[in-house]
Structures are given as structure tokens and as C-alpha cells.
Design a protein around this nucleic acid. Structure first.
Lengths: 126, 126
DNA sequence: CGTTCATGTTTACAGATGTAGTCGATTACA
DNA sequence: TGTAATCGACTACATCTGTAAACATGAACG
């Protein structure tokens, strides 16, 4: 529902989504400003990405005078969930614990991560 | 190190890698047999994917008579690590705990996941 | 020895992606 | 009111991906 068509959002498009999740609605120019700080894109590129996102129904437009204001149509949470699940399914046979175990073994977990996870766990099991 | 060039492995290519991680070295035909069970690929497709993986230095070849035997050049662990890290970096600002929190909130964690993670945690903090 | 089978190599081709330029309409400023 | 700055739409184009056919060649079999 939050992802009507299930169309995939590409890496570059995702950067644009992040801008819109941070603040919206925004005009194309504003999105470009926000995004150009990290990626070095030209305004033209940002406009293309916005069009594609609109086509994918991931972003909605609302006319303001003669311009458009763009806003996300899919929630960040839903996107994160989809991507996370896809990874867990593809690489760890759907087991989130598998992913966790892997991160643990690879020592990819900081002490802060461990503390935070421990407290979340406690929450969940209470 | 285990990924000399850092060339990305695509989704389809990954399926071939899984076959080789399961058993190797294998001839192209054997890979095709293994992989065709899940994906419905033709032998031609598998051969293309193998070539691309060889080009990407993700798979090595060793001549056997007139044909090649293919084997993974990058360890599965390294691949999983790379992909997991990429996701965590891109979507959760590098915080594995962020990913965990998300999975937890999305109720994407089964009781088994929780138990397993709890015991892993205990291990780690001991 | 000729024919078929398996294989690696080459070529193909449509769709997705990254990155951007051009153009016509509009708006806002001088 | 003329002119420059904006903006959306369209076009461009190289690369990557998914999917596969065609071809050449050597091997195995009859």
C-alpha cells in the first residue's frame, strides 16, 4: 500500500527520496540544493530522477503556480523495511538472526550497537 | 582482498555464486543444472553469467581437458559482509543497531530470531 | 572418418540506471 | 514591456543487467 507498484527505487533515486523524507514538499530546485551537497549532481540530473520517481509513483507532485512541489508517496519506514527484508531474504534465507550473526562474527558491531541491541531485546522480551 | 576489484555482483550473478559456494569446482553445465532448479535459465544465460563473473574476477577457471571448471574467488563471508555493510551504511547511517531496531519495530523478528540473537549477544559480551 | 554433443566465445537486444543537455513556456525583475 | 531566470518535458547516451542465440571448435561416439 505504501508501495503501490512495487517499482524498485535505484540508488541514485534513493538519495533524492532521502532529501524529501528530510523535508517536503520541495521544489525541484530545493531538492537539487539539498542533494547536491553530497552527490555532485547537476540540476538536470535531479530533475530526471524526480521524473522517474514520479513515474514510479514513489513521489507525488502538487502544482504550485506553474511549478511542482514534490513529496514522498512512500514512507521511509516502508522503504527501509522492503530493502532490509530483501537483503535478509536473499542473503540469509530470510533469517534476521542470520544477518545478526554475520555482523557479529564479522565484528561489524560496535560496543554502542551491542548495548543498544541488548536494550532493545530486553524491551521486546519483557 | 577477497574482492580484488570490488566489482559489483548482480542479483542474477549472485545466484550463480551461490551454486559455486555450495559446491565447486563445477563445469558450466553443472552450474546450469544447479541453478536451473530455482531460476528458469537457459544454459546460454548461465554461460553468460559465468563469463561476467570471471571478468569481474569473482570466479576463477581452471582448465580441465578442453573445458573449464569454475570456482568462487571471493568467499561467501566476504560477499555477505560487503552487501550487509553496504545496506547498513546506505540505509541506517552505518549503524547496525539501526537496522536491528528497524527489524524489531517492523516485527520482522521471529521468536527464534530473538532467542538466537539473545544468545549471541550473551556470547559477545561475556 | 563423419556426425553429434558439449563448451567457450561472440554478438544481440531490451530495459534500467547514471548523468546530463536542449527546448519551449512562464514568471519575475528591470 | 522586454529580458533573464526557472521549470517541466523531452531527448541523449554510455553502461549495466537479464536473457539468450549463433558460431567455432574440439571431443566423443559410432
Amino acid at each position: 500500500m505504501t508501495d503501490p507498484t512495487g517499482e524498485r527505487i535505484s540508488e541514485a533515486e534513493h538519495a533524492v527520496m532521502e532529501a524529501l523524507w528530510t523535508r517536503s514538499p520541495l521544489s525541484a530546485g530545493e531538492v537539487a540544493d539539498a542533494v547536491m551537497q553530497n552527490r555532485g549532481w547537476s540540476l538536470a540530473t535531479v530533475k530526471t530522477l524526480l521524473s522517474r520517481l514520479v513515474a514510479k509513483q514513489a513521489v507525488s507532485t502538487q502544482p504550485q503556480g506553474k511549478r511542482f512541489l514534490y513529496a514522498p508517496r512512500i514512507a521511509r519506514e516502508a522503504y527501509l523495511g522492503g530493502e532490509s527484508r530483501r537483503l535478509v531474504d536473499r542473503l540469509f534465507g530470510g533469517s534476521a538472526a542470520g544477518l545478526f550473526a554475520h555482523l557479529a562474527e564479522a565484528e561489524a558491531l560496535s560496543q554502542a550497537d551491542l548495548d543498544r541491541i541488548a536494550s532493545l531485546l530486553e524491551e521486546l522480551r519483557k
